[in-house]
Design a protein around this nucleic acid. Structure first.
Length: 574
DNA sequence: GCCGTTTTCGGCCCGACTGTTTTCAGTCG
């Protein structure tokens, strides 16, 4: 069993314990342990078997959790979890994801109604049954109904980062187990969509057939949906991501990769073009209609070339003008991960990060960067122990003083909250001490669009603000973007030289492609940054770069592809 | 339930807002 699975069971039990009203600190211990286990490189299962090692070596795991882990390894669950699962319906965990309903409210609901599924909950709200209960009213019912709709929209989808993890794991596994030399991920994952519905893998050459059996036998596969000569479909992991693996002859690899990468719209347009040229395109190759002779299929490049097109990067394949651009030599030279020379949004232990300034600097060096910016939270985020004016100034001084020892240029920064009325959360004279201020919205997401627009415009009036952080505030699969007049804000940002962040955190990926393209057309400049709360998050930059590519950006559109001096010029105060 | 030690138990992140109240519990971040 993978560490993630142990962590998931602990986390899930902690959720149920909240409904049961267990001691809050005990619940937090479960959550801490889950986080520690998920982040531990050593395998828990291994540690449990090895008499030389103890799981209590993992910080956050003591005697109690160690016993729980042992029980999980033995039979896949543990006593307290079973007990809670008997007490609460299976839908309880889902219901906790509905906004507006926390553990306390759910406990009340469960004690009053026969409530098993989200559907039941929806019905209760529609029939206005919640209003009969203490401290629940019409507004809550509306909020819950809205949230249920949002939840349904996102059900069955997975973050791009999860797809990346599974793709990497399975590619390595299939190479090892079946000797499959060439396993490639296609589909929306390859196009870099921010969420994926399933994972499409293609295997070709030596070991491709064997890979089908190997996949079906993978320890994390919970269900084999189907397996034949050429294709296997499975459910993978606790969350049940569907993985499809296809075994292909080498001569069709390019055609299959093209076909299964999509998007559907791109492929329809491409097939239309082929038809007009007297050709026909399918997953096996490109052939002449008149005599059926194959003209291409082994690689994507030869297929696009035979259609009179430059090879189109997967991120652009949405039928949004890329085919026309490829025909006329007008494709952009998309930004690449290697172009990024500094990460300019990250947190440390000073607020809610997990590492020190020194550790983040070392991680930045390891990424090969020339510079980083440390941008901890401001005081409005009390939960994150945000900085007040005094700590802001002290921090800026500290960075200036120790700068040379860190071995990488470190800009002193701040991710400063934009308050409800648009006023910055930190006084201007304290902000002025810093090299770089990111302005971000972290509260009052449901303001009227007009008020939200004014709020952001007002924040940009601060001469210290250089970057608008995660500009739409969406949290993937969880919360929609807040509504405001995007174009107006972008125009003002352009006028003031404020850059727009492309936040590479896998839960956000904000801005997304259509808005990036729109903003670029309006003259905006961008930074791509990870919002890292841990050194290992710096690697998420690839997802941000992929978003930028989907938005047709070139390196020159993204300011942190510039060297340290150019970047410094760009962040000079207006 | 974990941790750290003042070695046997006390501390563990907390402020703002919302919708419901008529003084505050629950949720969120």
């Amino acid at each position: 069993m993978e560490n993630r699975e142990f962590a998931r069971l602990l986390e899930e039990t902690a959720d149920l314990m909240e409904i049961a009203g267990d001691d809050g600190f005990r619940i937090r211990s479960y959550r801490n342990a889950a986080a520690a286990i998920a982040g531990t490189p050593a395998r828990v299962e291994e540690m449990l078997r090895n008499p030389e090692r103890k799981v209590t070596e993992i910080p956050g795991v003591g005697k109690g959790i160690a016993a729980v882990l042992g029980e999980i390894a033995e039979r896949g669950s543990f006593e307290r979890r079973d007990e809670l699962l008997r007490k609460y319906p299976p839908g309880a965990l889902e219901m906790l994801k509905i906004q507006g309903l926390g553990p306390k409210s759910l406990a009340v609901l469960f004690s009053h109604f026969e409530l098993k599924t989200i559907d039941d909950l929806e019905k209760l709200c529609q029939e206005h049954k919640l209003q009969d209960l203490p401290r629940m009213g019409a507004k809550l019912e509306e909020k819950v109904l809205r949230s249920i709709a949002q939840y349904r929209k996102s059900a069955g989808r997975f973050l791009l980062s999860y797809g990346a993890r599974v793709a990497a794991e399975l590619t390595a596994y299939l190479g090892e187990k079946a000797g499959a030399r060439q396993v490639t991920a296609a589909g929306s994952y390859r196009r870099g969509r921010e969420t994926i519905g399933d994972l499409d893998l293609l295997a070709t050459g030596v070991g491709a057939r064997e890979a089908l059996d190997a996949l079906a036998g993978h320890p994390s596969v919970t269900e084999v949906l189907g397996k034949g000569e050429n294709k296997a479909s499975v459910k993978y992991g606790g969350e049940g991501l569907q993985v499809d693996l296809r075994a292909l002859p080498e001569e069709s690899f390019g055609a299959a990769l093209q076909y299964f990468t999509g998007s559907k719209e791109h492929n329809v347009a491409l097939r239309g073009r082929a038809q007009r040229m007297g050709l026909t395109l399918n997953e096996y190759g490109l052939a002449r209609v008149e005599d059926g002779v194959r003209v291409a299929g082994a690689t994507e490049e030869e297929i696009y070339a035979a259609l009179g097109l430059a090879w189109i990067p997967p991120e652009l394949r949405e039928n949004q003008g890329e085919i026309e651009a490829a025909a006329s030599g007008g494709l952009p030279k998309l930004i690449e991960v290697g172009d990024v020379r500094g990460d300019v949004h990250m947190h440390t232990r000073e607020t809610d990060g997990r590492a020190t300034l020194e550790e983040m600097a070392a991680a930045g060096r390891a990424m090969g960067y020339e510079y980083i910016a440390i941008t901890d939270h401001s005081k409005a985020l009390a939960m994150a122990n945000g900085l007040d004016e005094k700590r802001v100034v002290a921090f800026a001084r500290r960075v200036r003083k120790m700068g040379p020892e860190l071995g990488i240029r470190v800009f002193s920064g701040l991710e400063c909250d934009i308050r409800k009325d648009g006023v910055m959360d930190i006084e201007e004279d304290a902000l002025a001490e810093l090299d770089l201020v990111i302005a971000s919205v972290h509260s009052h997401f449901s303001l009227e669009p007009a008020a939200m627009t004014e709020r952001i415009l007002r924040a940009m009036e601060s001469p210290s603000v250089r970057i608008l952080g995660h500009p739409t505030g969406r949290v993937l699969l969880h919360r929609d973007a807040y509504a405001y007049e995007f174009e107006r804000v972008v125009k003002e940002a352009v006028r003031r030289g404020v850059m727009l962040e492309i936040n590479a955190s896998p839960e956000r990926l904000d801005l997304h492609a259509p808005l990036i393209r729109l903003a670029k057309a309006l003259g905006a400049r961008f930074v791509i940054s990870t919002d890292a709360h841990d050194p290992k998050h710096l690697a998420n930059i690839r997802f941000g770069v992929q978003m930028a590519r989907r938005g047709w950006l070139e390196a020159r559109d993204v300011i942190n592809t510039q060297g340290v001096e150019e970047f410094q010029k760009a962040i000079q105060k207006s």
